[in-house]
Write a protein that binds this DNA or RNA. Structure first.
Length: 734
DNA sequence: AGCACGCCGACT
DNA sequence: GTCGGCGTGCTC
C-alpha cells in the first residue's frame, strides 16, 4: 500500500509499505517500507531489521493492512540477488502454516535454510592459456601446457592435478604470463542426469507398472500414484522411468527418502541409471555444499534432488515430480517446531503446483492404502520379486514352547539356525530395536530402579560405555557400583535385553564367530557406512542391530534374519503400534533373501496368533490391513478422523491424567484421548520435567483445528502445568 | 525464534 | 560488592 507521510520540507511523499514474513512466530507478516529505488515483488528474499538484528525475510502477498503505527516502520535493508519464491511456493507455505497451525514465518524459514546462499555464488578464479610460452621449458611445464591446450579454463589445483604436477609449477607459468586469470561460473554440484543413460528393459509386472505410472506422470497434472510392491519387486526401476520422463519434459524432480544419510546405495543405483548422482539434501550436509545446492536448485542448475523431509521446502525453479520412497516411514514426520508429515505435504505441493506425486512402499501406511481404495490415489501393484531374488521363508518361534535358557533371550530354535547359517559361511542378522545393554536396571536388595532425574523414564544401561543413559532427554551418568538407595555393592541387576546384551549371549554361544553390533549410539553416519560396506563384503558372520539395519542396505550373504522380540512395540498405547510393527518387521525380514540362496526369517514372539505375526509369516497382509482400517474407522482415527498430539508437562502421571480428563470436558466433539508415556513425547520437547503425550482424535477437521487452536491460546498459563505442542496428522485434503 | 531486561544465589 | 542463572516480554 501507499502511505502518505510528510518529509522535512512539509511535502507529502509516498512510502510504499509491503508485508514481509520474518523468521519469528508472529501470527502474520510484518510491515516494512520499501526504500526509493528498490524493486521488490511478492516472493523477494530480503534482509530486514528486526529488533536489534538483521534477519532474512520474504516479501509476502497482499496489501499491507496499515495497522501498525507508521512511525514504527523500518526500511527493507536489501533485496538479495536471487530468484523470488514463486507464487506456488508461497501458496504452499501458507497452506502448510494454516494446516499445521504454525506461524507462517516459521514455515517460510524452512524454505530459507541456507545461511549465505541468497546472493549469487561468486565466480571462481580460473586459468586460461595465452600465446606466451616460458623461457625455459621443462617436462613438468610441458605436461601442464598440454593439459591446458584443450581451449578450456582450468582451476589452479585442477590443472596441477590433471598434469600430475604440484601447483607451484602452474604458479611459475602464471607468473611468466603463460596463463591469464579469468573468472568462470562456479561448477555445478552435480552433473546433469541423462534420462537415456542406461534405460533398462523392463519385463512382465514391472513393465506393466511402469506403463501405468508413465500414463499418470505424462499427463503432467496433479495425481497421486501409490506403488505398492514387495521388497525386491523392482519399485525403484519403475519410478526411475517416471523420473526419466519428467527430466525429458524439462522439469525438476524431488525424491524424498527417509534418513538419506544412510542411503549411499540408492545414490549409486541412481547414478547407474542416469549417469550422475542426484544432489543430496539432508541435515548432515557441509554448510558450503548446502548453500551451493540451495542456490542451484533455485536457479534450475540442479535437476534432481534426493533428500530428507526438509528437501520438500526447497524453492525449486520448476518442480515437476515428487517421489516419496518408503512413504510409510515415520521419519517423514517432523515433531519439533513445525509439525508436519512430509509425505502428505508432498501431496499438497503437487496439488498446488499441478504435478504428479508418486508414493512408494512395500508396506503402505493405512492412510495411503485407504486413499488408494477410495480412488484418491492410483494404486499400482508389483506383486512378485524378479530375477533370482527368492522370498525368504518366514516363520514364528513360539517363545512359550521354545523358551530361551535362563538369563538368555534367544530360543534354541533361533540359535540352531544361526549356527547353521554361519556354518555354511553365510551371515545372520539378529534384530532388536533396543539400544544399550538393558532397558531397566534395579537393585536386587532394595528394589531401587534407576530412573531419569529429569524426565522420569528408566535409565538404560550401556555396558560398552560404562554408562546409564536416558534415551529421552540425553541424561547420562557413570554406571554406579553401589545402589544409590541402600548402598549395597554389586547387587544391581539388568532387566530385559538390549543389543549389547544379545551380543554377549551370541558370543557365549558362538565364540569363534565375528560378531558386530550396529546401533546408532555406537557410531556416526560415516563410520556406519563403512561398517555396512564391510558387512556386505562378508567381514562379519553375525550382525546384531537396531532399527537402522532395516534401512536400505543389502547384504548378499545374509540368509538368516532373527527378530529377537517381535512383540516389542505392540503394547505402547500408540494407535499405530501394530501398523508400525508390521512395517518394521517386514522391512527387516526383507533384508534376507535377496540372493539366489535359500533364506529364512524367524520371529520370536509370545503371541504367534497376533495379526501382525500372521500377516508377516503368511506374506498376505490384506486381512491385517482390513482389520486396521476397520479399527481406525471405528475410532475416528486418520484417515477417517484427525489425530493431534498434545504434550502435557506435569509433575506426575496422575496430574497428566487429570489434565486429560479436563481436556476431554473442554472438547466435547473430540472422540478420544489417549495418554502415552514419556517415551512418546518427542525428544525436543523434554526439558527437565515429567512429560506425557496426549493423543487426541476427532472426526471433523474443523473441530480438531478449533480444539488445537484453543489449546494454544489457552496455553500454559491458565492450565497450570500443561504445555501444548502439536502434531497434526493429516487426513484427506483432496 | 532470538535477544534484552530484570531479579535473586555463589564467587573473584 | 559483581557474574550469571533463566522467567517475561518484545520485535514492523
Amino acid at each position: 500500500m501507499t502511505l502518505d507521510s510528510t518529509d522535512l520540507f512539509g511535502a507529502v511523499i509516498d512510502r510504499r509499505v509491503v508485508p514481509v514474513l520474518v523468521p519469528m512466530p508472529a501470527a502474520k507478516a510484518y510491515s516494512y517500507v520499501v526504500p526509493d529505488g528498490m524493486a521488490v515483488e511478492p516472493g523477494s528474499i530480503v534482509q530486514v531489521p528486526l529488533g536489534p538484528r538483521l534477519v532474512v525475510g520474504v516479501v509476502w502477498d497482499g496489501a499491507d493492512d496499515g495497522m501498525v503505527d507508521p512511525r514504527k516502520l523500518k526500511q527493507i535493508e536489501k533485496v538479495f540477488d536471487c530468484p523470488p519464491l514463486t507464487g506456488d511456493m508461497r501458496a504452499f507455505l501458507d497452506w502448510v502454516a494454516a494446516y499445521t497451525v504454525t506461524p507462517p514465518g516459521l514455515v517460510a524459514r524452512m524454505a530459507l535454510r541456507a545461511p549465505a546462499a541468497f546472493d549469487p555464488e561468486p565466480m571462481v578464479e580460473a586459468l586460461r592459456l595465452t600465446d606466451m610460452r616460458p623461457e625455459r621449458m621443462t617436462s613438468a611445464r610441458e605436461r601442464v601446457i598440454a593439459a591446458a591446450s584443450d581451449g578450456f579454463s582450468w582451476t589452479r589445483s585442477g590443472l596441477a592435478h590433471a598434469a600430475g604436477v604440484s601447483s607451484s609449477v602452474v604458479d611459475g607459468l602464471t607468473a611468466q604470463g603463460v596463463f591469464e586469470t579469468v573468472f568462470m561460473p562456479p561448477p555445478p554440484v552435480v552433473a546433469l542426469p541423462d534420462p537415456d543413460f542406461a534405460a533398462p528393459r523392463l519385463e512382465g509386472a514391472q513393465k506393466d507398472a511402469a506403463a501405468d505410472l508413465l500414463a499418470a506422470v505424462e499427463e503432467r497434472r496433479f495425481s497421486v500414484s501409490l506403488i505398492d510392491g514387495i521388497t525386491g519387486s523392482g519399485k525403484t526401476e519403475v519410478y526411475f522411468e517416471a523420473i526419466a520422463a519428467t527430466l525429458r519434459a524439462g522439469k525438476q524432480v524431488l525424491i524424498l527418502l527417509p534418513e538419506i544419510a544412510l542411503t549411499a546405495s540408492f545414490l549409486e543405483r541412481f547414478q547407474d541409471r542416469f549417469g550422475s548422482k542426484p544432489a543430496e539434501w539432508h541435515s548432515d550436509l557441509a554448510p558450503r555444499t548446502r548453500e551451493k545446492v540451495w542456490r542451484q536448485v533455485t536457479t534450475g542448475q540442479v535437476r534432481v534432488v534426493a533428500g530428507a523431509r526438509s528437501a520438500l521446502f526447497l524453492p525449486f525453479e520448476d518442480l515437476g515430480l515428487i517421489i516419496v520412497d518408503e512413504e510409510h516411514d515415520p521419519a517423514y514426520k517432523q515433531e519439533d517446531r513445525v509439525f508436519y508429515n512430509a509425505r502428505d505435504m508432498a501431496v499438497v505441493r503437487g496439488r498446488i503446483s499441478n504435478f504428479p506425486v508418486v508414493l512408494v512402499s512395500a508396506t503402505p501406511s493405512v492412510e495411503s492404502r485407504v486413499n488408494g481404495e477410495m480412488g484418491r490415489y492410483r494404486p499400482i501393484h508389483l506383486p512378485t520379486r524378479f530375477g533370482d531374488a527368492a522370498l525368504p521363508h518366514l516363520g514364528v518361534v513360539d517363545m512359550r514352547r521354545h523358551p530361551p535358557e535362563r538369563g538368555g533371550f534367544l530360543s534354541p530354535v533361533l540359535l540352531d539356525q544361526v549356527g547353521k547359517a554361519i556354518g555354511r559361511g553365510e551371515q545372520a542378522l539378529l534384530f532388536l530395536n533396543r539400544r544399550g545393554y538393558a532397558p531397566l536396571t534395579l537393585c536386587r536388595v532394595c528394589g531401587h530402579r534407576f530412573q531419569c532425574p529429569d524426565c522420569s523414564s528408566w535409565l538404560v544401561e550401556h555396558r560398552f560405555r560404562g554408562q546409564i543413559q536416558c534415551h529421552h532427554c540425553g541424561y547420562s551418568e557413570r554406571t554406579p557400583e553401589a545402589c544409590p538407595e541402600c548402598g549395597t555393592l554389586d547387587h544391581l541387576v539388568a532387566c530385559g535385553p538390549g543389543v549389547e546384551r544379545i551380543a554377549e549371549e551370541v558370543e557365549r554361544h558362538f565364540p569363534e564367530a565375528r560378531t558386530i553390533v550396529l546401533s546408532s549410539d555406537l557410531m556416526g553416519v560415516k563410520r556406519l557406512r563403512l561398517e555396512l560396506e564391510a558387512i556386505a563384503r562378508g567381514e562379519a558372520d553375525i550382525v546384531i542391530g537396531t532399527q537402522l539395519v532395516a534401512k536400505g542396505h543389502n547384504f548378499p550373504m545374509m540368509t538368516l534374519v532373527g527378530i529377537v522380540d517381535a512383540d516389542l512395540g505392540l503394547a505402547n498405547g500408540d494407535p499405530r503400534a501394530a501398523e508400525r510393527t508390521f512395517q518394521l518387521l517386514s522391512q527387516v525380514t526383507g533384508r534376507a533373501g535377496r540372493t539366489g540362496l535359500k533364506s529364512l526369517g524367524l520371529l520370536q514372539t509370545y503371541q504367534p496368533q497376533h495379526p501382525v505375526m500372521q500377516a508377516i509369516v503368511s506374506g498376505d497382509s490384506d486381512a491385517f490391513y482390513e482389520r486396521e482400517i476397520n479399527e481406525r474407522e471405528r475410532a475416528a482415527l486418520p484417515p477417517f478422523g484427525r489425530l493431534a498430539s498434545i504434550i502435557v508437562s506435569a509433575d506426575s502421571r496422575n496430574d497428566a491424567e487429570g489434565h486429560a480428563r479436563g481436556l476431554r470436558m473442554a472438547a466435547p466433539r473430540v472422540d478420544g484421548i489417549a495418554i502415552l508415556g514419556p517415551a512418546e513425547a518427542p525428544l525436543a520437547l523434554i526439558r527437565g520435567r515429567h512429560r506425557f503425550r496426549l493423543l487426541v482424535h476427532g472426526r471433523r477437521n474443523s473441530d480438531m483445528q478449533a480444539f488445537v487452536k484453543a489449546m494454544i491460546a489457552g496455553g500454559p498459563k491458565e492450565r497450570g502445568s500443561i504445555s501444548v505442542q502439536l502434531d497434526i496428522d493429516p487426513q484427506s485434503f483432496l
